[in-house]
Simulated assay, not measured.
Amino acid sequence: MATNFLSTSNPFTLQSSSLTKPTYFYYHPIKSTVKKRESSLCNCKKDNQEALNLPIITKRCFLTTFLFSLAGKNLFDANAAILEADDDIELLEKVKRDRKQRLERESLINSSKIETGYLQQLVYKLSEVGQAIENNDLSAAGSVLGEGTDTDWVKKANIAFDKLSSSPEEKTEVDTFNSSLASLISSVSKKDIESSKLAFVSSASAFEKWTSLTGLAIQLKGL
């Protein structure tokens, strides 16, 4: 058995059902070593070639990326400059419009001395009414207010309102003032102190806001 094992161990034998004779494959140590070295050299050559090509590809990719980044930065800077220029132009136009409106309003106020006098009378009337309500003297407040909104000083105040009001906000405050004043007159006539106080605060606040919007606050005394 040992002899048979040694005889069949070298060479190796492969039996095939299709072959009439056994086929022997001999192991040649020198040729196998040469083939291994050739395979190793080929692999090394291939690896070296890939290693040589890799930096070139990397440099090209880096250069392309760098150029695109520069182009993108320049495009971004150009767009930013355009936007800044548009913002500057829009801001300049707004400043011009505001200045024009301010000059027109100043000219209108300077040419409305009579209407400014009506408004100054309104300030004095409201001051008297407020003092009387603070003292819980509704009879005194009623004597100043009158029985309705058709009194002379209220009519004159509305003439000034109509002439000097231009924006929707200013006209809204005028409507609020007239509505609150009507409530004030009604509350005072009913001797309702709490409602009179609330109505007075509402009417006075609306008037003060209107003078602030129109620029008349600095023109009137007692505000």
Rank of each mutant, 00 (worst) to 15 (best):
A80W: 05
F161Y: 03
F200L: 15
A80K: 15
C42A: 15
P22V: 11
S18H: 05
T214W: 00
N74F: 12
D47E: 12
D86W: 08
T211V: 01
E134N: 14
K35M: 10
N158P: 00
D77M: 11
D162K: 08
K100W: 05
T65R: 14
S39K: 12
L19Y: 05
F5P: 01
K191L: 11
I185V: 14
G148L: 00
S39R: 12
R60V: 07
L103F: 08
A80E: 13
I89Y: 06
P22K: 08
E173P: 00
S183W: 02
E128P: 00
C42E: 12
T64L: 13
E50F: 06
T33M: 14
V174L: 03
D88L: 12
E38F: 06
S179V: 08
A78T: 08
S17W: 03
E106F: 02
C44Q: 11
A206K: 03
L119M: 15
S165Y: 07
S112I: 09
A206I: 04
V123C: 08
A85H: 11
K36P: 02
E104T: 07
S112H: 07
M1L: 08
K190C: 01
S179Q: 12
E90H: 09
L103N: 14
K59M: 06
D192N: 15
V174E: 09
A204P: 00
I57T: 14
V188D: 10
A204M: 01
N4P: 02
S187P: 08
L54P: 00
R105E: 14
S183I: 00
S202G: 08
L6C: 03
E50P: 01
A199V: 07
K46P: 00
T151K: 02
K156E: 10
L138T: 05
F76V: 13
E50W: 06
V95H: 07
K163T: 11
N136P: 00
G130A: 10
L70A: 10
R99H: 06
Q121W: 03
T13I: 15
E173W: 00
F161D: 00
S180W: 03
N178E: 12
N10M: 09
G117I: 09
R60Q: 11
A85I: 04
K113I: 13
K125F: 02
N79V: 11
A182C: 04
A132W: 02
L122Q: 11
S111R: 07
I109C: 05
I82Q: 10
S165M: 06
G130K: 03
K45Q: 04
Y124F: 03
F161P: 00
T65M: 09
F25S: 13
G72S: 14
E194M: 06
S9P: 02
G148S: 13
N178A: 09
T211F: 00
K155T: 02
T176E: 15
C61Q: 09
L181R: 03
L103T: 09
L67M: 10
Q131T: 08
N135C: 05
V174I: 15
C61H: 03
I82T: 09
S195A: 15
N74P: 00
V95A: 10
L122H: 11
F12R: 14
F68T: 06
D47C: 07
R99Q: 14
P22R: 09
K100S: 15
Y27K: 13
K156N: 13
S18Y: 05
K171W: 07
K163W: 05
S183E: 07
L126C: 04
R37Y: 08
